[in-house]
């Protein structure tokens, strides 16, 4: 077996006594889509925020391509090629789409000043892939619709040649056409060998796009399974009851067999 692109082992984090993530281990192979599932508040966003450098885990280890990775800030994560679409989108509302997409990684001219024209041009290209109707390049992101804002957040994550992409409910605000477009995008990126963690509550989307699912409940891992080995009902059982089916690898959070 080849080395995984990402391995998170025994990850735990607590917020003032609440164990948001408790001894969770997940991994991701190149060109693979792993869906993270679980009820609201299960700890999915918190887990991936540890990978993206927003939080530092209290315990556990992250490996990228087999090497122990010390990820303390979002800058560190980006250095490892980890890009993230946050559930909250994390956009600066008062500046335009291009400024958001290039935030922290601006294109500058020979004199070190911002090259807004070049950034707008790149923005137009990447947005054309996601949302061909998008025209409001000059306006602050505040003026955009929820779906348009989400497109900007996705554009920011895919523009910088990520090796590892984290998508936290990337299509929650999108219309059917735009959602389909993101589905296509996921397949394209997968074909390029990019590994993707996908968080979604849409079980059909998950079975359509993901190779494996990892299910969390109350901050603990119920189990991990190939989507080809389990049924949708079995996965729903994992999410709701924490019941781990035969075909899945059991996690510490699985319900004890009766």
């Amino acid at each position: 077996m080849s080395t995984p692109l990402v391995e998170m082992r025994g990850i735990s984090i607590a917020f003032g006594g609440i164990k948001a993530v408790d001894d969770v281990s997940v991994d991701l192979m190149p060109g693979e889509v792993v869906a993270l599932l679980g009820h609201n508040g299960a700890g999915k966003s918190t887990l991936i925020k540890i990978l993206s450098g927003a939080y530092r885990a209290d315990a556990g280890e992250i490996r990228v391509e087999g090497q122990v990775a010390d990820i303390g800030t979002p800058r560190d994560a980006k250095r490892y090629g980890i890009e993230t679409i946050y559930q909250t989108l994390a956009l600066a509302d008062n500046v335009d789409a291009a400024a958001n997409i290039f935030l922290g990684r601006e294109i500058v001219t020979r004199w070190g000043t911002l090259d807004d024209a070049a950034m707008e041009s790149a923005t137009r290209q990447v947005m054309a892939r996601l949302n061909p109707h998008f025209r409001r390049f000059k306006e602050p992101v505040r003026a955009l619709s929820g779906g348009q804002r989400q497109s900007v957040a996705i554009a920011r994550a895919i523009h910088f040649n990520a090796r590892i992409l984290i998508m936290d409910e990337p299509t929650a605000a999108l219309g059917p056409a735009e959602t389909a477009q993101v589905g296509e995008l996921v397949k394209q990126l997968k074909a390029q060998g990019i590994g993707i963690f996908l968080i979604s509550h849409d079980i059909h989307d998950v079975f359509d796009l993901a190779d494996r699912v990892s299910v969390m409940k109350n901050g603990r891992l119920v189990g991990t399974a190939r989507t080809s080995d389990v049924t949708k009902d079995e996965v729903l059982g994992m999410i709701i009851l924490g019941k781990c089916p035969e075909a899945a690898v059991r996690g510490p959070g699985a319900m004890a067999d009766s």
Binding site: P74, Y86, A92, L103, T113, L114
Partner: peptide
Amino acid sequence: VLATRTRFGRYVFAIGGNPEAAELSGVN
């Protein structure tokens, strides 16, 4: 020029718009 044409200025405005987003985008 500093406020509108440099990275520093861009970061200042982004921090004002959404400090958390600026941090998550890798701005120091």
